[in-house]
Amino acid sequence: MRLDLQPWGETMAELVIAARAAEAAGAGVVWAPELHRSAFTTAAALATGTSKVAGGEARIGVGTGIALAFARSAMLTAIAAADLDELSEGRFRLGLGTGVARLNQDWHGVEFERPLPRLRDTVAIIRKVLAGGDPINHKGVRSIRVRGWRRPYAPVREHIPIYLAGVGPAMVALAGEVADGWIAHELCPPADLRDRILPILGKAGRPDFDVVAAACCSVDDDPATARRRAANVVGFYASVRSYAETFGAAGFGEVCENASNALRNGRPADDLGHLVPDEMVDAYTIAGTPAQCAAKIAAYDGLADAIKLSPPSYGLPAEEVRESQDRLLELVGSLR
C-alpha cells in the first residue's frame, strides 16, 4: 500500500520543504488541498520543488486533493491540469470534489443544483479539452461550445488521471464509473471503507483504479498527547450538519449536538476537541504512539491502494503542527 502525504506549511516555502521530506521518506504522492490556499498554486509549488526524475523514472507524484470542481470553469480546470502535468513532467493527478452547497453558493457564487450530473459533465468536459481537437462540444448541466481553439503545446501524456472525492453513495458510485481513482474524506475508518465504499466503487475488473483512503495521523510517544492533537479535527466535522447522521449511527450523536451548540455560541469551529471523547478520536483518526499508528495504518492494507496521511492542524499552534508533521514523516520513513 502506498503512503501519501498531505503536507502542512505555515508558508509556501515550508510546504515545499515538507514535500521534499515526504519524498525522501518514500511517500508516493503529495496532495494539495483547497481551502486557505489554491490547490493548483500549491500543486505547482510542490511539482517544481520536488524531484522530477530519478534514474530516468518519475518519483513522487503531485495531486490536488481536492480542488473544487465547480468554482472554476471545466475548461480552466483542464488547462491548469495540463500545465501542472507539464511542470511535473507527467506526475500530476487531478483530484476534484464538489464541496458543500453553502461553500459553492455563498463563498464562490456558483450554482450547486444537481451536483451529481454537474460533476459528471465536469469530468467529461475536462477530458474533451485535454484530448484536444476543434470543435469541443458538450451539452448537459454544465455545457461547453468552443470553436477555433486548440492548445498549441504537445501534452506530456495522453491521459492525466482524474480522481473524485465522494462521501455519499451516489458520488462514490460516480467516481467508480467515470474517474481513475477515488479519494476518501479525512475521516474514513477501515470498516467504512470495507463495508460501504468498496462495494459501491465496484473496483472488480478495474485493476488500475486507485482507491485512496485518508486519515489525520497524530503520532506521539504519549498517546494522550496524540489524541488531544487530533481531537479538534473530529470536533470540527462533528459540528457540521452533513455528518450528523453518520456520527449518530456510530453512537456519537450527543457529541454532534454539543459541538453544534458550542459553534452557535461562538466557539471557533477548529476548537471543539474538548467535546470529543477518546473513543471517537480512536474511531475516526490514526492517533497514538508510532507502533499504534503503524498498526492502524496496516488495517487499511488490502482495502486501499494508498492512504493520504495528514498531520493534525486544527486549532493548534504552528510549532505543535510542525512537531506533529515531523513525527508523521518519521513514521512514513520507518514503514517504507
Rank of each mutant, 00 (worst) to 15 (best):
R93S: 11
C188F: 04
L94Y: 09
V141I: 08
V30R: 02
E57L: 04
V211P: 00
V276A: 10
D221R: 15
Y300H: 13
G55E: 10
E330S: 09
S324M: 06
G90P: 10
Y300P: 11
A184H: 07
R327T: 07
A74V: 07
V129Y: 11
H185R: 01
D278M: 07
A287Q: 12
D83P: 00
L201K: 02
I160A: 10
A295E: 15
A165H: 08
G181H: 11
R322G: 08
V255T: 13
R114W: 04
E86R: 14
G315M: 10
M12L: 14
S218L: 05
R120V: 06
L263I: 02
R127C: 02
L35D: 13
A78Y: 13
R229D: 13
I126V: 15
A18H: 01
G248D: 08
L309T: 00
R227F: 08
E245A: 15
L328D: 04
G176D: 11
I136R: 09
A175K: 12
L15G: 02
A262K: 03
A249H: 09
S260I: 12
D83Q: 15
A249N: 13
L174T: 06
E323M: 09
A101G: 02
K52R: 15
V234P: 11
A224Q: 13
V332G: 01
L309P: 01
F209Y: 05
Y237H: 05
E10G: 04
E320Q: 15
A18I: 01
I66C: 01
R142M: 06
G288F: 10
L119G: 00
A262Y: 05
A283P: 03
P290V: 08
W31Q: 08
L130R: 15
A269D: 00
T50H: 12
L335K: 00
A231C: 10
V129F: 11
K308I: 10
S242P: 01
V129T: 04
L335P: 01
S313I: 10
G132A: 04
V233F: 12
P268K: 04
V240H: 00
R228W: 08
P311N: 00
S239K: 03
C217R: 01
P169G: 15
I79G: 00
A250M: 12
D270N: 15
S88P: 02
G61P: 02
E254D: 15
R151D: 06
M12C: 01
D83G: 03
Q6R: 05
I200H: 03
F40H: 14
G273K: 06
P161R: 12
A191D: 14
D195P: 02
Y314E: 11
L116K: 05
K308T: 12
P312S: 04
V276T: 07
G97S: 10
F112S: 07
G166D: 09
G273P: 02
E245N: 11
M171R: 10
G65L: 10
